[in-house]
Design a protein around this nucleic acid. Sequence first.
DNA 1: TGAGGAATATTTGCATACAATCTATACGCT
DNA 2: AGCGTATAGATTGTATGCAAATATTCCTCA
Lengths: 235, 235
Amino acid sequence: MSEPAPPSAPSSSGDVGARIRADIITGVHAPGTKLREVALAEQYAVSRIPIREALRSLEAEGLVESRKYSGSVVAPSPVEDAEDLFEIRIVLESATAKRAAKRASELNASDTPDLKWRELRKEISDILDAGDIVIGQERFEDLAVLNMRFHFAVAELSGSVSFISLLRQISGKIEWLYSLNVTRRGPQAWPEHREIMAAIDAGQEAKAAEVMARHVRRSRDSYFAMMSAEPPRTT
Amino acid sequence: MSEPAPPSAPSSSGDVGARIRADIITGVHAPGTKLREVALAEQYAVSRIPIREALRSLEAEGLVESRKYSGSVVAPSPVEDAEDLFEIRIVLESATAKRAAKRASELNASDTPDLKWRELRKEISDILDAGDIVIGQERFEDLAVLNMRFHFAVAELSGSVSFISLLRQISGKIEWLYSLNVTRRGPQAWPEHREIMAAIDAGQEAKAAEVMARHVRRSRDSYFAMMSAEPPRTT
DNA sequence: TGAGGAATATTTGCATACAATCTATACGCT
DNA sequence: AGCGTATAGATTGTATGCAAATATTCCTCA
């Protein structure tokens, strides 16, 4: 893939959490930086309370690490965990693709139409079409958010809230990973998305899983190839 | 498997979070219950602040659901997601077993001993031995926590912090799942643990993954068999 | 009698203030 | 001089109080 951008913002308590989150991902708060509550409070123009609650959410996401009475520090850059993160995506997303295909075949067999499924399916079609358009216009930044939306929409097709929740969980680090060094694989990745959806629509569980796994593996390889060519800025 | 009990308590802010967490898992706070902050505050003899932070952590764990200005409610019982939770364990834990086997073969090849690895490996041996003992004494409650510790120790052998973190993430719901209806599969599961470790020690990546997957599938089947025999108390 | 809406009540969100703990500096002792 | 300890400073944890938003109640009206 070639994906940054939030799915729908896992969001913390207020949107202060989202702002801190974005500032960590974009490097405003460098890894290892001590995040002092009073400093953040005046920086974001709120009191310490919402700051603290935001830090708890960010801690759960693995973007900061906290110790009692010792404060919070920005987590190490996720580049070290890149291999793990991609492998997690491979196993989780191939599982969701497989489940989505299973649901598709079940829905094809039954005659009662699932409203939510049709809605999601329509959204995916729109995303894919929009992707083709922005590729034609060479607006690759927009492709990145469409890509993220595609992968989460597929996960939602699976109907497995636990899987979706876990993918949300790692989405922060995935975004962080990509924000460090932007890939240009979007155009190549797009036809693969259509291939994935074709397998799902056809109800081919094994193929959907395999195609999704290959897709993520390719984006992993593309990522590491780019990384070795141009190492990330070590903030 | 047959696993409840926290790995090391994913823990919330204070230990108030851990107490609320335990009370949700044990059914003191039933699914769907509105958790009002003032009520919790006086119930746990603290102010609303630590309560709020605990709720944020529990929300991240998926044990409560919150909406702004609308409060928090205990999440629905995880029995509906049991299938998903087991499948997540299958894909995540077979991946960690595979990685652990890979590391084992790498360490066997190299001559520099990894201190942390040896330490973990020793801990696992102790866990396995302790398991045999408590089985002999038919103290199956103790087996449950040993089981949980085994699975997390294997995950740590993989050295993948992201995987460990995700497993921690779902551990709450897993514990919740098992607390609803306690299985008795512990004794049967234990030899499988030794089989898993044997594959890891031998550096057989594919076999380690397959054995682990089969192990979790068996505990899933055991869980559902027991569930159909004796449906869970619908709190 | 039921539905719609306004006023009340309850509950969460946030800010200020104080207590508990950690950290860093300086002092005294060997 | 080096090291352990104590004291002061800084920082997090918690409590109380008030404002904003939601949920509920009750009244009015068709």
